[in-house]
Design a protein around this nucleic acid. Structure first.
Length: 606
DNA sequence: AGCATCACTTAGGAGGCGGTTC
DNA sequence: GAACCGCCTCCTAAGTGATGCT
């Protein structure tokens, strides 16, 4: 019976903590009493039924907007810009010309060297041709797009060289559109919309070896578009002569408009900007879930380590997968069909993606991961693991082909179901958020010297950020001309050093003169001292810049900053160390994280 | 149960812009 | 005052995970 008392006490404690956490929500402060009450009711359902009834996933009660902005209509080429087939000039029909233009623009891109891209393009292009055109044009290598390509280049050149007035006029026009279509009214607040422009037609640019690359993404018409808004709002007007596919009033979703894209048959949505309350609240919740994981992570780790010895193979696989997700911040790895690029995450790893080494480079039980993850970004990592993990992996790959699933008894659904039992709201992706944020916090503690200058502190911050980006495998292409710009920087540094040497000699002379000399000479000496100090400061700055830039060349910091790092950690660090928040977050980021900037004091801990 | 669908978050690249440097 | 360069914004693809449907 003691057992039940413990459970009861724990339950009450949990409830009390929930109320405290809930009432600390930055989003609650300006909310009316009635909605607090609604929320309160939602947190304390009297029954399962009432929970379902009240926590019905309502996202808004009023939503009004002007609908999306459509891509401008096609402008035919000037008649002097010609297309040739098999050496002969050919005037294309408008539709065929437009699609040819999509290809012509990409002539210098890598895509046009890929046969999948070219085949898909030709197939789809021929579908929009007139029967005569389609009869003639059967071989892409006989197509000459060069004049079209040159024309587009000249147009963008002209655009770049627009006069000040033209640029200003264009900017004003864009702001006008932004003002009219870029905002909506949701529950009494004016909020920015994220993507209010409908995607223009073009050629599908899948990432990696995508089987659909080069296919035609056709023009979206109002007749394709679903509008979502309040019944009692001003319903957006479709462009004249057109009508919407449907107008609905679904307040259980957050999108304002949607359509289905024709290449992959995927829904696309017009949604709110990250600065909106709706998105901010969701973001805050995400970090609160991750903090909850922090509180029980030790238990969960214990739990999966124990499961490495489980009798059931499914449980063992689950435990090893979870270990990878936790320790290496791997993604869950949903199944994919073969209409997409072949990429994997943890649960979809295949035997061919790992190598087992009993010993490698002096380390025992090393697992080498080598696979393409999201966006076909390569994940390569040599990881020494516990012996038990290693032995399990040996069992998992026994009698399997390279192309077989490593975790054949496991998928993301079963994994997430298990996680839900360990902690409410826990899914595989929470581990990524958790490990990213906790890593930032630990690294900041470790790397920040309280006495250092602000630029040095910022370097420390970037290094902590970088540690997270490496953990999450956030990569980018090496910027064009990186090595060149590094050399230039090195030269600059050398020049600065020479300058300093010179200035030092100068100063020595001046100080000699000052010792015996006049007031004037003393002043001159002081001046030189200051000049030297300035030079040294500049050198330090340059050297910091050098380290920062080189360490960063293949690592993208933005993704983790935007999606994985609890902003309150960064805000607290800034406040604690006197670093202006603008040094860490730009305008967009400050808008997105306003809730955290307002909320976190210097003592916030994740 | 097993899938398809839906909604929403996470992701890197392109291209423009604005600051810096010569 | 032009060239250069890095950063920022926009864009949209590619994930995750819940829910709906058969």
């Amino acid at each position: 019976m003691f057992f039940f008392e413990v459970i009861l006490v724990l339950w009450i404690m949990f409830k009390v903590v929930s109320v405290i956490v809930w009432n600390n929500s930055p989003f609650l402060r300006k909310v009316s009493l009635s909605s607090v009450f609604t929320r309160h009711k939602r947190r304390f359902p009297r029954s399962k039924w009432e929970e379902e009834k009240t926590d019905d996933g309502t996202k808004w009660t009023f939503l009004e907007h002007k609908g999306p902005v459509f891509a401008p209509p096609y402008e035919p080429l000037p008649s002097n810009v010609k297309f040739y087939y098999d050496g002969k000039e050919l005037k294309l029909s408008e539709d065929a010309e437009e699609v040819a233009g999509f290809y012509a623009r990409m002539l210098e891109h890598d895509y046009t060297t890929k046969s999948v891209f070219n085949t898909n393009f030709l197939t789809d292009w021929r579908k929009v041709m007139t029967p005569e055109e389609a009869k003639l044009i059967k071989d892409l290598s006989k197509c000459n797009f060069k004049e079209m390509h040159a024309y587009f280049q000249s147009v963008s050149e002209k655009n770049r060289n627009r006069s000040k007035e033209e640029k200003a006029a264009l900017k004003a026009k864009n702001e006008e559109i932004q003002k009219e279509y870029g905002f909506c009214t949701i529950d009494g607040h004016k909020e920015k919309i994220g993507n209010f422009r409908i995607e223009p037609p073009g050629l599908f640019r899948g990432r990696g070896e995508h089987p659909k690359m080069g296919k035609l993404k056709r023009r979206v018409m109002p007749e394709d578009v679903l509008i979502n808004c309040s019944k009692d709002s001003k319903i957006p007007k479709p462009p004249s002569g057109h009508k919407w596919r449907e107008v609905r009033h679904d307040n259980t979703v957050t999108w304002l408009a949607s359509w289905t894209e024709n290449v992959q048959q995927q829904a696309k949505y017009v949604m709110l900007n990250p600065s909106s309350k709706l998105k901010g609240e969701k973001d805050w919740q995400k970090y609160e879930t991750a903090r909850k994981l922090h509180k029980c992570i030790d238990k969960i780790r214990e739990n999966y380590r124990a499961d490495w010895k489980a009798k059931e193979m499914q449980v063992r696989q689950r435990a090893v997968a979870l270990y990878f997700i936790d320790r290496l911040a791997l993604r869950a790895g949903n199944e994919k069909d073969d209409e997409q690029a072949d990429t994997v995450g943890c649960c979809s790893l295949r035997v061919e993606h790992i190598q087992l080494h009993k010993e490698k480079d002096g380390k025992e039980y090393v697992v080498v991961f080598d696979f393409l993850g999201k966006d076909s970004i390569r994940y390569y990592n040599e990881v020494p693991v516990e012996k038990r993990v290693f032995k399990n992996l040996e069992i998992f790959i026994e009698n399997k082909k390279d192309s077989d699933d490593l975790f054949d008894r496991l998928n993301t659904q079963t994994l997430n179901e298990h996680l839900k039992d360990l902690m409410p709201g826990l899914t595989a992706k929470v581990f990524r958020t958790y490990n990213a944020s906790i890593t930032l916090q630990k690294q900041l503690d470790e790397l920040t010297d309280g006495d250092a200058s602000v630029p040095e502190k910022i370097l420390a911050y970037n290094r902590a950020n970088r540690a997270v980006a490496i953990l999450c495998n956030h990569q980018r292409a090496v910027p064009k001309g990186h090595s060149k710009s590094m050399e230039a920087l090195k030269e600059k540094i050398q020049a600065k050093r020479d300058q300093i040497d010179e200035a030092e000699e100068d100063l020595q002379q001046a100080s000699k003169a000052a010792k015996r000399g006049s007031v004037k000479e003393k002043l001159a000496c002081d001046k030189k001292k200051k000049a030297l100090e300035r030079l040294k400061d500049q050198l330090k700055k340059l050297e910091l810049q050098e380290t920062d830039r080189d360490e960063n060349k293949t690592i993208a910091l933005g993704t983790s900053k935007l999606n994985y790092l609890d902003p309150r950690i960064s805000v607290a660090w800034c406040k604690k160390h006197g670093v202006p928040i603008e040094k860490i977050y730009n305008k967009t980021q400050r808008d997105k994280f306003r809730w955290a900037i307002d909320m976190a004091g210097p003592d916030y801990v994740f």
